[in-house]
Write a protein that binds this DNA or RNA. Sequence first.
DNA 1: ATTCCAAAAACTTTCGAAAATCCTTCTTGC
DNA 2: GCAAGAAGGATTTTCGAAAGTTTTTGGAAT
Lengths: 228, 228
Amino acid sequence: MTLAEKAYDALRHDIIRGAFAPESPLRLADLSERYGMGFSPLREALNRLQAERLVTAESLRGFRVAPLSLDELHDAIALRIQIESEALRSAIRLGDDAWAAGIVSALYALTLQAGRTGAQADIWALEARHHAFHRALLVACNSPWTLEFFERLYAATERYRIPVLLAATRPAGRDVQAEHKALAEATLDRDAGKAVVVLREHYLRTAEDIERAIPAQDGDALPAKAAV
Amino acid sequence: MTLAEKAYDALRHDIIRGAFAPESPLRLADLSERYGMGFSPLREALNRLQAERLVTAESLRGFRVAPLSLDELHDAIALRIQIESEALRSAIRLGDDAWAAGIVSALYALTLQAGRTGAQADIWALEARHHAFHRALLVACNSPWTLEFFERLYAATERYRIPVLLAATRPAGRDVQAEHKALAEATLDRDAGKAVVVLREHYLRTAEDIERAIPAQDGDALPAKAAV
DNA sequence: ATTCCAAAAACTTTCGAAAATCCTTCTTGC
DNA sequence: GCAAGAAGGATTTTCGAAAGTTTTTGGAAT
């Protein structure tokens, strides 16, 4: 693995998980020290992340962490519902036993991790299981472009969900794992109509949780998060 | 504008328009000579294009032009129909007078350019008008992510359409400009149902034209095009 | 003739410094 | 006191070379 790839993985990871405040400048000297490499691989990684809309760039003025806004959250969630609903229908139509087994396995791993508490609770492991589960549902849709856009929108929306995960307070009146279980069951039953309804509800509730976790703001931009 | 941005624009332009054969290696020494700059800005541009799936990269083995395949074409067209249909409905619901005027203007410019023949015919100008027209239809959808994906899929599919444009033989039994006119009219009439039907037919016929223009192949990969 | 291995060549990747630009601060003139 | 502008510092961008890896070539052994 080249340094540029390591830089890409590390930066993407750190941006999604809120290690840098939205809109804060990503200075090469700082990044060079943080990640222990020269400017070249860092700039290559930043250019990739710019194309993914996780960082913004301005000519001769460097790179910044992409901003967060409620408008963008709603846009991304709405598009996820639209794209993933179709993808889920396709996956249900096309998926084979290996796909189904992948869902069972991913749900099991997710549930297991979600059940861990105290010293064993690991929010980043939980996040990885969550990503893997949602991906497993769609992976049989036979559309590389759909999966590409799923990954892009997942990353975009995950930035908003991290504060909710960090708060670690179970949202009142919501059992997220039950929703995941219901989603997996409807999918494995090949009940596309029910699955997409459950999927939509799942995402809309997540959006609500995120909005609830955000302190009221005058404008649209969301507050910066301290480094994690 | 920085050299890296110029490199990005030039490379993207040249890849979409078939100046390099699909899967051909993009060697830095060659690109450095072609575009008259050093390695650094070229590598940054290539990294951005990699994130956009217009080039592929392999560790320590450099960059290549992304391959073309009928599977990918069908995937991209199907997703364009899905995403743009929804976007068109939103635009019809939300669009104001400026949006409508933009469609009229873009259609006029497209029709004008399509009518030019002989020395005045300019396939790249026509392509630019075509892109602008399809974008103008959707621009009022109020979804930045949708527009982002539109651009990505437009670029991806345009690579397949270029050979058809270059052939410059009017496909038998098809009046593309009439389709554009019908699409604009249904949209300006705010007849969403009709507009999305026309849009779907328009794209499916384009896919057919592309397939017809392609010589039969054993495998899935499409033939390389000579440099333009 | 073929396979294996070493050396050379080609190429990518990374660094460190130079060049160019932007931002801040301080001075000057009014 | 305040605006305009120049000097200095900080930062980004680009280059050229060095380092590292892959591919090709050439030769020896089977």
